[in-house]
Amino acid sequence: MHYLKKIDSAFAAVEKWLIVVFLSTMITFTFIHVCLRIFLINLNLDLAQILLKHLDWSQPLVRLLVLWVAFIGASLVTRDNKHIRIDLLGSVLDGAPKSIWSLVTSGASLAISLFLVKASIGYLISEIAYNDLLFLRIPAWIGHLVVPGALMLISLRFFISLMTALDKIGNDVFRHSPTQPTATRK
């Protein structure tokens, strides 16, 4: 558990920096692209034309980064346990029932996200088989690697919250049992 949390925060640190780099790239390239086009149309600058031609991969790159940022963001949100949910029970339950219920939802989340990991890997393998290419002849599966990657991290985080919920239930039971000495508790 302790190790898992360490791995988790190491990944999170990398993910945060990826977001910063990718978002900056998206802003910069979109901004430059539009500026060049404005220069070209209104001032007819030859330089703008040449640069635009050499930057024709930038728009597909930016679109691809939307996918990366979205999935990395979703993975980090899982870590904060802040995914959007219709939590009709959340405000009703409290204490031990709440812990048990969060165990159930974490378990179901883990199951579905593991299923998605498997399915997405299968999809990427078919992309490799068909040798699909993106801009600049980048293999499609590399561009789309973020999907199984982020889903794996999402699974890891659901696993951690599953263990946390288990822990909590254990603790709840523990606290209510008078025979156990408190000293051995960590």
Partner: peptide, 8 residues
């Protein structure tokens, strides 16, 4: 409806 993340 009862707490599973919606996207899942």
């Amino acid at each position: 409806l009862l707490g599973l993340p919606l996207f899942l």
